[in-house]
Design a protein around this nucleic acid. Structure first.
Ligand code: MN
Ligand code: MN
Ligand code: ZN
Ligand code: ZN
Lengths: 150, 150
DNA sequence: ATCCTTACCGCGAATAGTAGCAATAGCGTG
DNA sequence: CACGCTATTGCTACTATTCGCGGTAAGGAT
């Protein structure tokens, strides 16, 4: 969860990983980008900075994967199936409502997910990953359109 | 939800879609395959049947998509990100617990998802799609391994 | 049975993301 | 600071899935 340079660097090394220039540049790009970003967007942001040498896209995918595995970033698959990243520490813990119809995504905090996690733990000894969870369904607008058409 | 030939055929036509031989063969393959299947597996099953002429893979993807949109099949992205299909009417309504660590998936019924749907509807006018929902986290075994290692 | 509309098919190209591998470069150690 | 181990990179090939297009064939209506 550390959001500042020094702590992130330390966390990366403490986990047996290495702080490469590529990862540094990716983290810088993430600091510049607001909210949710995809690997392609982050790659583009890295390329934009003329001080950076060229980087392979696969490096971005692998770096984001590693940062998410460490809990520094959170990831979720948006409606197009594209993986989307965000600082884990950004704002309050929240979840995503993805409309299957229009593709819209909303950030919300759902209290009843606590009960879900408790039930899964009690009945199935399963530890639900609540961070940045994506829930699919229909947004208000698309529900209206669907009932209007029927 | 119809599981038998005649009802499915009728539902397909009623929705303005067409019951092509390709779709018939895909439905036959689905009847043969047990549990969850991926598009590739269904494609392989269609090809296996020597009575069938060759079919393009993209046709399978499109057919499964259409059948899922009609509610005849349900789909969810398994741990590898591979889309997995199942008869919507098969067994009791259930959900999936996907272990992010070992990739294992378990089928369970979670009562507290009702409260989640209610909360999303009340606070965000969002209709959660509870059918075949996939929840990620850590299975019992992987939790044990993780605490043992720490 | 014949016609007409248009949903659907096959094909080939494009996309997001992963995997394998040899070369490179962090970083803990002496 | 030089050394060695191995995590990581760049590249390329590959997988799962989607998309556009011109041709085909369901199936409702004469
Ligand atoms: Mn978010
Ligand atoms: Mn299932
Ligand atoms: Zn919507
Ligand atoms: Zn597991």
């Amino acid at each position: 969860m550390p959001h500042d340079e020094a702590n992130i660097a330390q966390a990366i090394r403490a986990s047996g990983r290495r702080l490469t220039i590529q990862r540094t540049q990716i983290l810088e790009a993430l600091h510049r980008l607001p909210g949710h970003s995809t690997a392609e967007q982050i790659y583009a942001a890295v390329c934009e900075d003329s001080r950076n040498a060229e980087m392979a896209v696969s490096t971005v995918y692998r770096a984001l994967d590693a940062l998410a595995a460490m809990g520094i970033l959170t990831a979720f698959a948006d409606n197009g199936g594209v993986t989307t990243y965000e600082w884990a520490a950004a704002g309050a813990p929240h979840h995503h409502l993805l409309c299957e119809c229009c593709g819209d995504t909303a950030e919300v905090a759902l209290a009843s997910l606590g009960a879900l996690a408790a039930e899964a733990a009690r009945d199935h000894r399963f530890a639900v990953d609540l961070r940045h969870m994506a829930i699919r369904g229909l947004c208000a607008r698309c529900q209206r359109e669907r009932t209007a058409r029927a």
